[in-house]
Amino acid sequence: MVALRHALKHRSAKPVLWLLCSLPFVWLVWGAANDALGANPAEYVIRATGDWTLRLLCVTLAVTPLRVMLGVPELAKLRRMFGLFTYFYVVLHLLCYSWLDMGFEWGDIADDIAKRPFILVGFSAFLLLTPLALTSFNRAIRWLGAKRWQWLHRLVYGVAMLAVLHFFWMRAGKNNFAEVFVYALVLFVLLAWRVVHSSMWRQLSRSVGFTR
């Protein structure tokens, strides 16, 4: 842990992780330019941006449990970056769907969102994530007050459930759930840890005898 804390304190830690998070995007741009995304590049890009949204959502939600369990406070500084990358990929996902699948036909897109539960769920997750991205800077915390800001950012738990449901529904017709279960399990563990941890913390603070 000492080594990890040391590495995370290094001034290159953030830029390196920033580059890692943008690699999937770089790959997609390179692949699109070089016709390296297979027989159906549009489908590839839409799915890949969706996959990376889910992965970065898991990473973002893993920050706090790892920070507490491993005792590495330096991790906290990375949470915002991961969260914003999650938003970056969901915006790309929505953009690719609107463009490559729907040809920016706004009427068709509105119909599609209203008509298809699986699209509606995905779109709702995007909408719920938007205020989080918009209030991600320090001054927003001051404006809202830390407590209200924290409450607002608990929306991310709803986003996680909607995101998995969206993915589940997409795979449902083909009974192809292996990957969905992996994401569901990871997110379940990360959310369950929070429930258990916060109730433990409440008990502990009660027994020690101080109030919040």
Binding site: L37, V45, D112, R116
Partner: peptide, 19 residues
């Protein structure tokens, strides 16, 4: 329509790439 997507249009594989 399929319950989860429209069947009104289709993407021809191998035609003009991504766009």
């Amino acid at each position: 329509d399929h319950p989860r997507w429209s069947q009104a249009s289709e993407r021809r594989i191998g035609e003009d790439g991504l766009f």
